[in-house]
Amino acid sequence: MLKKLFILIFITASIGAFGQSKFIAKNAYISFYSSTPLEDILGESNEAVTILNAETGEIGFQALMTTFHFKRALMEEHFNENYMESAKFPKARFNGKIEGFNKDMLTAPVANIKVTGLLNVHGVEKTITVPGTLGIENGKLVGTSKFKVTPEDYGIVIPAIVRDKIGKEMEVTVKANYLPFGK
């Protein structure tokens, strides 16, 4: 009896561990934008990686800071050198979970969701809750999000001399077209 129970638990556990289905997007889009009367700043990356666990609703993002590109070459240089310190902190990460997740969300049309998790930027980690959408669009699983972050919260110092050119808040836009993982 006990033996059977063990086997049962073991099988359930292994299905849990190995049989989880995941979705991945290897070229997810992440941008941040700030607009002031003096200057608009737009940094864009099309090389972020994101994985969505279809069993648990856990969702992760990773992006290398050097994959963000700008219209002005100097902005890109300053972004990496002066603000993000990309040599020291090469990566931005988000590990979170979709609130009230159920599997039907992955097959239903696009609907609003909320994601809570840890955002790690510039070596500083903060818990954030952001709005987003998830669902099937043109036959594909698409996730998007738009939220605001304050650079100062992540230890990014903006000196007084350029304060008027860089917005207090950055609007972050995320878009990912997910494909089944490993297929």
């Binding site: 290897k26 994101t50 994985i51 856990e58 992760g60 990773q62 290398l64 990460r93 590990n95």
Partner: peptide
């Protein structure tokens, strides 16, 4: 296990 697994998978994909 999963979150780490997720991190590792993404590390491998970058």
């Amino acid at each position: 296990g999963f979150s780490q697994d997720l991190d590792e998978l993404m590390n491998a994909e970058l």
